[in-house]
């Protein structure tokens, strides 16, 4: 048994983090006609919020709950279910490394060690200059290019430990060749 007790009854003002601005809220509202219930808008709303803030702050969770008429804990429930959503602030670029079998067999372990050594941070941590955060994920669905990693939304295939220096200094390392889906940026007009 653990002897430590953590306080969940109170949240200090500075721990609430940033809130959503009106433009973000308006964007979330524009998704309402697409779904049968407001609850169903939660996932796109979380994507929008994370795009805007970089992570889902406690204040954002409360605001989302209010917006979608849900108990705030229901938002927390969904946020923590998906590893994609961060509940604390992160760096400008996030590296997501695969920790699954194929990548591990193809040298993923060495990539991870190299990365942790170069960045000097552990999983879910951020470098002091606010540039990099890093996390591992069960699978990036690119086993044929193992070992692979994501920098923000760009997939780097067949990465070996030796390639890390080159990738990390490349200013274009998170540049997407293909334009990003407009799904979350411009919701299509739907009939009421």
């Amino acid at each position: 048994m653990s002897w430590r007790t953590i306080d969940r009854r109170t949240a200090a003002e500075q721990d609430l983090g940033p809130g959503l601005n009106d433009a973000v809220k308006e964007k979330i509202r524009s998704f309402f006609p697409r779904y049968p219930t407001k609850r169903a808008v939660l996932l796109p709303a979380l994507h929008i919020a994370q795009d805007a803030l970089g992570y889902i702050s406690l204040r954002a969770m409360r605001e989302l709950a209010e917006l979608l008429e849900l108990p705030p804990s229901a938002v927390l429930d969904v946020v923590t279910f998906y590893t994609h959503f961060w509940t604390h602030s992160r760096g400008r670029k996030t590296i997501v490394l695969c920790r699954s079998l194929t990548c591990e067999l193809m040298g993923g372990g060495r990539v991870r060690e190299g990365l942790e050594q170069r960045l000097g941070i552990g999983e879910h941590e951020t470098t002091p200059d606010g540039q990099w955060s890093y996390m591992t994920e069960e699978c990036l669905a690119a086993c044929e290019h193992a070992p692979c990693l994501l920098i923000n939304e760009k997939l780097h295939k067949g990465v070996q430990a030796e390639d890390l220096d080159r990738i990390l200094v490349d200013p274009e390392n998170d540049h997407l060749d293909m334009p990003r889906s407009t799904l979350f940026d411009a919701p299509a007009e739907t009939k009421p």
Binding site: R8, R9, T10, A11, D15, L16, L58, M61, R62, L70, P71, P72, S73, A74, V75, L76, D77, T80, F81, T83
Partner: peptide, 23 residues
Amino acid sequence: GTGELAVVGRGSRCEIDVLPGQP
């Protein structure tokens, strides 16, 4: 009908919790 409690996390990391500040 107040829904203060939630299952947070996934799989073996699941826990019961409240949103901090909403006891």
